[in-house]
């Protein structure tokens, strides 16, 4: 069933209650699906949270994933996105000895900026589409990044 293994973004609205996250991740591991990235946060002024799950699979697998997710009792809604705005964030630490002007310019191109300059390190953040974040992380290799932290994606239907 792994024909046409495409990257998909699925959003899930769940009730805020104990063990709801493990119900979802157990479903993926138990049925042999993969989670590429996952981000969760409460929806303001409600009893729900929103999960954004990046996964991959054929049309049929994705259909099963959405149906199985929907079967879980605390799941309110499942969206499988077609046309969406998607953002991811990365925070990177560089040695202070690197060229700060170059780094700053690069960050600006990727919707980012320098957020902290210390005695020994420069810390920057960027937030952009996942593919562009990939690019950014590729380009900055020449500035010897010491540490990279990357968030999961968040997405909204257009």
């Amino acid at each position: 069933m792994s024909d046409n293994n495409e990257r998909r973004v699925v959003s899930v609205i769940v009730v805020n209650e104990a063990s709801v996250l493990s119900r979802i991740t157990d479903l993926f591991s138990g049925r042999g699906y993969n989670i590429t990235s996952l981000s969760v946060a409460p929806i303001p002024e409600s009893k729900y949270s929103r999960l954004t799950i990046v996964t991959s699979g054929s049309v049929r697998v994705i259909e099963q994933i959405t149906k199985q997710l929907h079967k879980l009792i605390p799941v309110l809604r499942v969206y499988e996105h077609a046309d969406l705005v998607e953002k991811e964030m990365a925070i990177v630490k560089f040695p202070a000895s690197e060229n700060i002007a170059d780094i700053s310019t690069l960050c600006a191109v990727y919707n980012g900026k320098i957020v902290n300059v210390g005695e020994n390190v420069i810390i920057v953040m960027v937030s952009d589409e996942p593919k562009r974040v990939d690019n950014f992380l590729k380009i900055i290799k020449r500035y010897n990044p010491k540490e990279i932290v990357r968030s999961g994606a968040v997405a909204l239907e257009r």
């Binding site: 104990a18 063990s19 493990s22 119900r23 157990d26 138990g30 009792i73």
Partner: peptide, 15 residues
């Protein structure tokens, strides 16, 4: 509940 999660329709730990 960690064990029964994958073999029940639903489960609860009542606190």
């Amino acid at each position: 509940v960690g064990i029964s999660r994958s073999c029940t329709k639903h489960n609860y730990l009542v606190t």
